[in-house]
Design a protein around this nucleic acid. Structure first.
Length: 171
DNA sequence: TAAGTGCGTCGTT
DNA sequence: AACGACGCACTTA
């Protein structure tokens, strides 16, 4: 069992509100939007952040604020995506390969991971992305440059895309 | 254009 | 066995 893995939660003030970052012993493992219903998962005592976690958090804060302005972050902290299945992790890796300002369709992501028919499952994996914005699931659109869905709310997806000057079909 | 129906497909629960 | 952040081929208004 790995039950004594501690999770540290720290807030990130931004111009768009207060995000919450979660850290495992291996790196950043979660990011929650301002006002997202499930803000804090931990009912545990607040855990003091170790120096290494504080260093990671500094990187996260800088990266998130850059991303929210539509810029590619210069550096990211280590990401702990081990909570996902093998399929999900392959999707998330594909998402990270999409450059700022670029988009792929769900079908293109499916092709890129070698499962061209698992289109709908790709949508599910995007929805399960624990680190939105920095793992850019918002850069995946439905066919024909339409918006598709977003677990953090479509308003956020529209905003993130607009910051990267990405145009949608229904303009 | 917009909105609705049906089906193939497949990972997750 | 049921359910999707899909995609495509339809039909209808």
């Amino acid at each position: 069992m790995k039950s004594n893995s501690q999770i540290v939660e720290l807030t990130i003030p931004t111009a768009d509100g207060e995000f919450i970052a979660r850290y495992s012993e291996n790196g950043l493992c979660g990011l929650a939007f301002p006002g997202s219903p499930q803000r804090r998962i931990s009912t545990l005592q607040p855990v003091a952040a170790s120096p290494i976690v504080r260093a990671w958090h500094d990187m996260t804060v800088e990266a998130l604020n850059a991303a929210l302005l539509g810029h590619a972050p210069k550096a990211l902290p280590p990401l702990d995506l081990a909570s996902g299945t093998a399929f999900q992790q392959s999707v998330w890796a594909a998402l990270r390969s999409i450059d700022c300002g670029q988009t792929l369709s769900y079908a293109q992501v499916a092709e890129r991971i070698g499962r061209p028919k698992a289109v709908r499952a790709v949508g599910g994996a995007c929805g399960a992305n624990p680190i939105p914005v920095l793992v850019p699931c918002h850069r995946v659109l439905a066919a024909n440059q339409r918006l598709g869905g977003f677990s953090g709310g479509l308003d956020w997806k529209r905003k993130l895309l607009a910051r990267e000057s990405i145009k949608l079909a229904s303009d």
